[in-house]
């Protein structure tokens, strides 16, 4: 009985804590990704970072219709040992970035991070060169499924600069939501400007 009461108390405390977290506007225009770089938003987004408990520190998450329908991850620049997705269970570690990753390993890092978010059957395709601001980078597409079988598509752009990994990753259900946002996502990826450049 004591265990049951403790569990109820923990659950209630967690829900109260979550209720204090806020979603803030990310209006049309410049969106700063920490001190590292900025992007231009062509439509009104919501910054849902505060309620995305599994994102790592320095990772921003934006959404238009809610994180189940579209989510855009923007990393400030991951250093050695940093992850895109925070591990919530010790026995389920999430991928961590290493500064000597090969280009293939950076793609694998993003794909495995998507899997760590709970997506199933994550596959990457259409690997191609990309420009992350003024840096050479990689672009690629993803497909996956949610645990309940919904098809999800993704688009990612990554670059390594000064020992840090910069990631922009968009995920949305394949039906309607991904295609609907694709032009905006391309525009955001093309708008990256590193600060101080």
């Amino acid at each position: 009985m004591r265990n049951v009461i403790a569990a109820v108390t923990s659950a209630a405390a967690l829900l109260l804590l979550a209720g204090c977290m806020t979603v803030v506007d990310a209006p049309v225009g410049t969106y700063k990704v920490g001190e590292a770089y900025q992007v231009s938003l062509g439509r009104h987004w919501a910054d849902v970072s505060a309620i995305m408990l599994d994102r790592s520190h320095g990772v921003h998450v934006l959404s238009v219709d809610g994180p189940l329908l579209n989510r855009l991850y923007l990393s400030e620049g991951l250093g050695a040992g940093d992850s895109l997705v925070k591990s919530t269970v010790k026995e389920k570690p999430t991928p961590t970035y290493k500064t000597d990753f090969s280009p293939t390993e950076t793609v694998e890092f993003v794909a495995d991070s998507v899997a760590a978010l709970g997506y199933q059957k994550v596959e990457t395709s259409h690997l191609r060169p990309g420009r992350f601001g003024n840096e050479d980078g990689l672009r690629f597409d993803l497909v996956a499924k949610t645990t309940d079988g919904l098809d999800v598509s993704g688009s990612a752009m990554i670059a390594q600069k000064g020992g840090r990994l910069y990631v922009i990753l968009f995920l949305a259900p394949t039906e309607h939501f991904f295609g609907d946002a694709a032009p905006e996502i391309d525009a955001i990826m093309n708008s990256v400007q590193f600060h101080g450049v």
Partner: peptide
């Protein structure tokens, strides 16, 4: 207890899928 397991299971599943408790 069963109700609590169902609730806890729901929260655990949600957290793993990247959804916070508030959603």
């Amino acid at each position: 207890a069963l109700g609590l397991i169902l609730s806890a299971g729901m929260m655990a599943g949600g957290a793993y899928a990247g959804v916070s408790a508030s959603t």
